[in-house]
């Protein structure tokens, strides 16, 4: 595969070169980053802006079920919800995708046939990623063969933390190749990377290796998407496009449960990466319970009265 851009042709020539590049990225001051994220969180999004944001947020959801207890029935219910989130209001947009384990991908593909909703499948021994490359690639090919439009892979955090950046890079490239036409989301598990400097490095590593999306988390660890780590990743995709011309999407996942939170994330997108990312092609929410809260807020806006959990569907 060709390198992503001549500007960074030599970056991955060796482990040492990649390390020098990643460690040469500007540092991140944690307090300043969090203060900026908090400050954007105080934006007051009302009336028409709120209506716009809620519909946009719904359209950006990767409606997710990633449980050992998943069944075809559960996945079909989710697929139905994704296409028509609010059965009482057909103007409600569909979600962006349904996100499942690879063995559930065929069910999801069947259930979503003919709709705009994509099928996203996690792969690469999600969520730990502790498997051989061969297994990870097989996992990926399996999902693609089942018809997944998007692959959500996890990086080898162990290799990253041990400083084996080239190993992580090459693994992403291999998965990208295996994914073929499917769009590749690269999950960093930011809660395990632990520092903002690491998140910025991982972002660039992922983008250099060909990620179509960079994604915060699996949703399976203590700390998942936060305004600060998402802001940081938005800065990374913004800077990456400025330097390479290549636009990469961002997906915060895990822990975003309320409309208020979702709107805050959209403000981050709007004021950091910019309007070009205000589209489900470039920004996603990895979430499940968020959708119902958005739907209740949507009902409140259209009817003027507060809704309740009995007026949205349990799936």
């Amino acid at each position: 595969m060709p390198t992503i851009t001549p500007a960074f042709a030599d970056v991955a020539a060796s482990d040492g070169a990649l390390r020098r590049f990643l460690h040469g990225l500007p540092g991140v001051d944690a307090v300043g980053l969090e203060a900026r994220a908090a400050s954007l969180g105080t934006r007051s999004i009302k009336t028409t802006a709120k209506a716009y944001a809620i519909d946009l947020a719904i359209s950006m959801i990767d409606l997710t079920t990633l449980e050992g207890a998943d069944t075809p029935g559960k996945v079909r219910a989710l697929a139905a919800k994704a296409q028509h989130p609010d059965p009482t209001d057909r103007t409600t947009p569909a979600t962006a995708a349904v996100c499942v384990y690879p063995d559930m991908a065929p069910t999801a593909v069947a259930a979503l046939a003919g709709s705009t909703v994509k099928v996203a499948s996690v792969a690469t021994a999600f969520p730990a990623g502790r498997a051989s490359l061969a297994v990870k690639l097989a996992d990926t090919r399996d999902a693609v063969a089942a018809g997944a439009d998007e692959i959500d892979m996890v990086i080898d955090r162990g290799a990253f933390l041990a400083g084996h950046y080239l190993k992580v890079y090459e693994e992403i490239r291999a998965v990208k190749e295996a994914a073929g036409a499917a769009r590749l989301k690269v999950i960093f598990e930011t809660g395990e990377l632990s520092t903002y400097d690491n998140i910025r490095r991982a972002s660039w590593l992922g983008m250099l290796a060909g990620a179509d999306f960079i994604k915060t988390s699996t949703g399976k660890v203590g700390v998942n998407a936060t305004p600060a780590n998402t802001l940081l990743m938005l800065e990374a995709v913004r800077d990456f496009r400025a330097q390479t011309g290549v636009q990469v999407g961002v997906k915060p996942a895990g822990g975003i449960r309320t409309s208020k939170d979702a709107v805050k994330f959209l403000v981050l997108v709007n004021e950091t990466a910019g309007a070009d990312w205000l589209d489900s092609h470039w920004f996603r929410f990895g979430a499940s319970s968020l959708l119902n809260d958005l739907l209740m807020q949507r009902q409140k806006l259209s009817t003027g009265r507060y809704s309740g959990p009995d007026y949205v569907t349990v799936d």
Partner: peptide
């Protein structure tokens, strides 16, 4: 280039 995400007045 206006953003589609225009913040409504929030006085």
């Amino acid at each position: 280039m206006g953003s589609p995400f225009e913040y409504a007045p929030a006085p």
